[in-house]
Structures are given as C-alpha cells and as structure tokens.
C-alpha cells in the first residue's frame, strides 16, 4: 500500500505515491521467438515500474512489441516464444513461471483485457458462465453468489438489463457491449494490476470514448495499476498518467503525459505526435507521416532501431544503441542526439 502523504499538497502526494514500492517491477524484459529461419527479438531489454493508482500507456506502431510485453507478463506467449529478464509482481517473480503457478494470480490479482471483443469471448458459452467461473475458480464462490456479483458488475460497466442479458451468448451483444463484458470479466476479482491491449481499437469511435472513460473510472475505484497498450495517442491523452514510447522492441522515451505531449525529446516521439491529428491544432491538408518503414524485428542489429528513419541520424546511431538514461524526475530517453536536460526554465 502507498504510504499516506504528510501534507494534503497534490504534488507531494504524487511524489509519495511514486516513491512507494512499485506493484510491478519489470527489468530487462526480452521476448524472443524461434522461427525456422532463426530467432526474432520482439522485445529488447525493457524495464519499467507500475504503481498502484496510475495508468501507464505503452505506445508504438504496429509490430513494436507492445502486445508481447503484456502477453509475456501474463504467461501467454505463443509456444515458440520465450521471455528473459525479471518481472516482480507484489515482490514475487512472475517471469518463467509455469502456467499452473501463474493461475493463482492470473484472472484474480492480475488480469487482462484483450483487443478484439468479438473473438476474445467464448462463442459457445453463455456470458454468465464465462463470468461466474472466474469467481468460482479463484474465490470458491457458489454459482449463485458468483452470479450476483457478476450481475452487479455488469450494472457497473453500464450494460442495460444486466440481469436478463447475462444469460445471453456473446454474439447477441454489440461490439461495445462485448468489450464492457470483457472489462467486467477482468475486474471480477478486483485485480491490483490490469493490462489492456488496445481495448478500443475494434470499436466505433463514438463507443471508444465511453469505454475509455469507463475503464479509467473503474481502475481509479480499484486503485489498480493499469498498463494500456495502444498505437492511438488519443487514448493515451485521455487516460494515462505516464507514457512509454516503444520502437522496434525498445523503449525510446518515457515520461509523464505532459512531458511526452508538450516536450517530446526523441525524434520518433516527435514524429509520432506530428503524425497524429489533433483537435486543438489546425493541420493544413495532409497529415505528416514519418518517412520510411518500421524496421522488422529481425535479429539483433546493432545501433538504434529508429536510425534508418531518423532525421537526426549520425554515425554512432548505426553502430551503438544509445543507452536509456534517466533524469532526476524519472524521465527517460534513449537517443545519441537529443539532450535529456530540462530546457524549460
């Protein structure tokens, strides 16, 4: 539990929360896949902390390794994948555990919301059975008790007529309603750690906002640590306290929402922001795009993965990966050619 702050001052409260022991501590997490033509590194020595009550966004373009970070922590990597490094959840190592060992916390203390609510719910089971089984397995609740809790939670995620609808099958729900079911499913055992992998990508734009708001509200109520993966900076802006920017399986930059949005340092982060349409800015005609193709996550090339597309590229960029350096406030940056020192007065 985070220690109670001495004063009511908002800033010091934030510091106190951050100073408290993280609930999840990831160090040098790498994910590799074995393929017939050799090994592929999808995630490369990634380290970060998550604290209770904060929402951290992991952003990066397709193939940057976002999903694999979450899946490896949940013990859900594909059979040809393996994770190395360390991840301590509530001071217990969770990496390299067998499925059986993880089953004690998966779905209860630590749970995950998947991207595609159409395919992530079992089409052959009633929603009620898919919800109640979680409580029955983890908390030994009776079917009746579990059903009561599940209905209450469906009410909380604002599914109308929850008592009746809980007996339906997933295909009888709309996409947005299904994602609400997924969220309820993940929250049944009141987890302290919640992962969400692009929870709104498959949904209509109008529904996206509602779902994000709901997710933020529920996470706050639980005082859970939330990691949300997305390639949509709009999602980050709405929900997150801190942002991790991923490229080619590596952390390029990490900071608070304000730091990343108003003072990006890494050329990739800048490009990402410039290529995102913003409501508060008038873009003239076409959107900016980052030139070049994302590097395929093949092999372990030396140097910075972003260098082939980088405008600031210099000789060292191709030969050595810039170290991820941190400043006193915990902001981190990996770039040979951008300074981390605070330029603001």
């Amino acid at each position: 539990m985070p220690s109670t702050p001495m004063s009511g001052d908002v800033l010091s409260e934030a510091r106190a929360t951050n100073a408290a022991a993280p609930i999840l501590s990831v160090r040098d997490l790498s994910v590799r896949f074995k393929l017939p033509q050799g090994a592929v590194t999808a995630v490369d020595r990634v380290s970060f902390d998550l604290h209770r009550g904060e929402v951290v966004g992991i952003v990066g373009e397709s193939g940057s390794g976002k999903s694999q970070i979450l899946l490896s922590l949940m013990g859900l990597l594909a059979s040809n994948g393996s994770a190395t490094g360390s991840a301590r959840f509530e001071n217990t190592e969770i990496l390299g555990r067998t499925a059986k060992e993880l089953d004690g916390i998966r779905g209860s203390a630590m749970s995950m919301i998947f991207q595609d609510p159409m395919t992530s719910l079992n089409p052959y089971m009633r929603v009620s059975d898919q919800l109640t089984e979680v409580l029955m397995v983890h908390q030994g609740k009776s079917q009746r008790e579990a059903l009561g809790i599940a209905i209450d939670l469906l009410d909380r995620v604002r599914i109308p007529e929850a008592r009746r609808r809980i007996g339906l099958y997933p295909h009888e729900f709309s996409g947005g309603m299904r994602q609400r079911v997924m969220i309820a499913m993940a929250l049944l055992c009141r987890p302290s750690l919640l992962f969400a992998d692009e929870p709104t990508t498959a949904l209509d734009v109008t529904v996206q906002a509602q779902i994000l708001e709901l997710l933020g509200e529920l996470a706050r109520d639980l005082d859970a640590a939330v990691a949300i993966v997305t390639h949509d900076l709009g999602v980050i802006a709405r929900l997150c306290d801190r942002v991790i920017v991923l490229y080619g399986g590596r952390i390029m930059e990490q900071g608070t929402l304000d730091e990343i949005f108003y003072d990006p340092r890494h050329p990739y982060t800048k490009g990402l922001l410039a290529s995102t349409p913003r409501l508060d800015e008038r873009t003239h005609g076409e959107l900016l795009t980052i030139p070049g193709q994302p590097r395929a996550a093949m092999g372990d090339l030396p140097g910075c993965p972003f260098s082939p597309r980088c405008a600031l590229r210099t000789a060292p960029c191709d030969s050595a990966m810039p170290p991820l350096v941190a400043d006193a406030g915990g902001r981190r940056l990996a770039c040979h050619n951008s300074p981390l020192e605070d330029r603001r007065p």
Partner: peptide, 17 residues
C-alpha cells in the same frame, strides 16, 4: 490457438477447465 482460449488462460482457470 483462438483468442477465446487465450482469454480462458488469462483468467487462470487451469489447463483442465
């Protein structure tokens, strides 16, 4: 290999279930 079996695993239901 389906997503919903992955969901079942993520729920910590155990291999049997």
């Amino acid at each position: 290999r389906t997503n919903y079996v992955r969901t079942a695993r993520a729920k910590g239901l155990g291999e049997r279930r």
